[in-house]
């Protein structure tokens, strides 16, 4: 059975700033290496009649590319993020209202989808929306020589044979969403899932630290 070598896994330096914009109800910017994304959340607010759902809130996710208008790629990413958020948000607490999550690409240097997910979670936390669990995104790439690379850069993504992004929840470390590209074996998929779950521990520790810092009196 083919297996990947999994030595020397690492996440690039990552950082986050919350409440950086004054207008949205919640905002955050998330940085992974050079990749950065800015997120803003509005809601719960008035909903258009056409989009109203009688027993829960309508979640709308918009992704703004850096150059030009949103295309098919952005639409598919929007769907991935929306489904993840819908799985963790307690939407039934705000029936007949709207939540809008806007994600702006600041710089793309690989692992963009996982950065979207992390920024989205941070912004939702900042907006104080009720959630059943937190979530984080981890991207794994399998390089041509069968090495797993976590949090790949754009160059590493380009050289990779397969690329997988998982959204992982904070309570059970279950997979909320997966998006894959390229070909890989079942064994490789399982390996990537386990590696992502390991990496998510680091992310959730970071979430914990940043919330702790936010509600502390001193730096």
């Amino acid at each position: 059975m083919e297996a990947c070598s999994i030595s020397n896994l690492k996440l690039r330096e990552f950082g986050c700033e919350q409440s950086l914009l004054s207008r949205p109800d919640g905002s955050a910017s998330f940085i992974q290496g050079d990749t950065s994304v800015c997120a803003g959340v509005y809601g719960p607010a008035e909903v258009k009649v056409s989009k109203e759902i009688y027993d829960r809130a309508t979640l709308e996710v918009l992704i703004q590319p850096k150059v030009g208008l949103a295309g098919v790629r952005e639409r598919s990413q929007e769907q991935c993020v929306r489904e993840t958020c819908e799985a963790s948000l307690l939407l039934s607490l705000h029936p007949r209202s709207s939540l809008t999550l806007v994600l702006q690409v600041i710089h793309d240097d690989g692992s963009l989808l996982s950065c979207f997910l992390n920024a989205a979670c941070m912004a939702l936390m900042d907006a104080g929306l009720p959630m059943s669990c937190l979530f984080c995104g981890v991207t794994c790439a399998i390089s041509a020589d069968g090495q797993i690379v976590t949090d790949p850069t754009a160059a590493q993504e380009k050289e990779s044979r397969a690329l997988m992004t998982f959204a992982i929840d904070s309570t059970e470390r279950n997979i909320l969403m997966s998006s894959t590209k390229g070909s890989f074996s079942v064994h490789e998929l399982q390996q990537c899932i386990v590696v992502s779950q390991k990496a998510s521990e680091k992310m959730f520790q970071f979430y914990r630290d940043s919330v702790k810092r936010r509600y502390s009196k001193y730096l």
Partner: peptide, 14 residues
């Protein structure tokens, strides 16, 4: 700022 936090490169135990 207390709203911002940054970490360095972190290894993932495998």
């Amino acid at each position: 700022r207390i709203t911002a936090l940054k970490t360095d490169k972190t290894p993932v135990e495998a």
